[in-house]
Amino acid sequence: MRLLVITYYWPPSGGAGVQRTLKFVKHLPSFGVECTVITVDPDRGAYPVLDESLAAEIPASVRVIRTDTSEPFGSYKKLTGRQQIPYGGFANESKTSFQQRFFKFVRGNVFIPDPRRGWNAHVLRAVAGLLRAGETFDAVLTSSPPHSTQLIGLALKKRYGLRWLADLRDPWTDIYYSKELNQTAPARWLDEWYERQVLEQADEVLVTSPDTKRLLLGKSAKLTAGKFHVLPNGYDESDFREPSAPPTDSLLITHTGTISEIYHIELFLAACGECSRRHPDVNLRLRFVGKV
Rank of each mutant, 00 (worst) to 15 (best):
R107Y: 05
K23M: 06
A46F: 15
E180N: 11
Q183F: 02
V64W: 05
V207L: 04
W10I: 06
V64M: 00
P72I: 02
Y76R: 10
V25C: 04
H264P: 07
E52F: 09
G290E: 03
S30A: 15
A202F: 05
F24V: 01
L284E: 03
K227C: 03
K157V: 10
S209W: 02
P243D: 12
P232N: 12
S53I: 06
P186G: 01
E192R: 13
G134I: 08
L165E: 11
G226E: 14
S178H: 15
Q150N: 15
N182G: 08
R214Y: 15
L199N: 03
T67W: 00
Q100E: 03
A166N: 09
N92G: 13
L168V: 04
P246E: 05
H147T: 15
A16F: 08
H255D: 03
D236N: 02
L231F: 07
P246I: 01
N109A: 03
N120K: 14
V110I: 15
L231E: 08
G108C: 02
E274A: 00
R159M: 10
G15D: 03
K158N: 15
V292M: 06
V140H: 03
Y87G: 01
V198T: 01
A221G: 02
V282R: 06
P115G: 05
R285W: 08
K23I: 08
I65W: 00
D41R: 10
G14W: 05
G45C: 08
R132D: 13
S61C: 11
S178I: 15
I265N: 07
E242S: 14
E52N: 15
G74I: 09
L22Y: 15
L154S: 00
V110C: 12
P115K: 04
R63H: 11
V62L: 08
D170Q: 09
F228W: 06
G81E: 07
E237I: 15
V40S: 01
F31L: 13
T7Y: 08
R188Y: 01
T258C: 02
V198Y: 03
V198F: 04
S250V: 06
R2W: 00
T208N: 13
Q150V: 13
D239S: 14
G32P: 11
P246C: 04
Q201R: 12
L269C: 11
V205N: 11
F111C: 05
K95W: 06
Q84T: 15
L130P: 05
L168T: 01
E52H: 15
F105T: 08
R44S: 00
F111T: 14
L162N: 10
I152Y: 05
P86Y: 07
P232R: 07
I38C: 02
S178R: 14
I38V: 06
S70P: 00
Y263R: 12
W172D: 08
E135R: 09
N233I: 06
F105K: 08
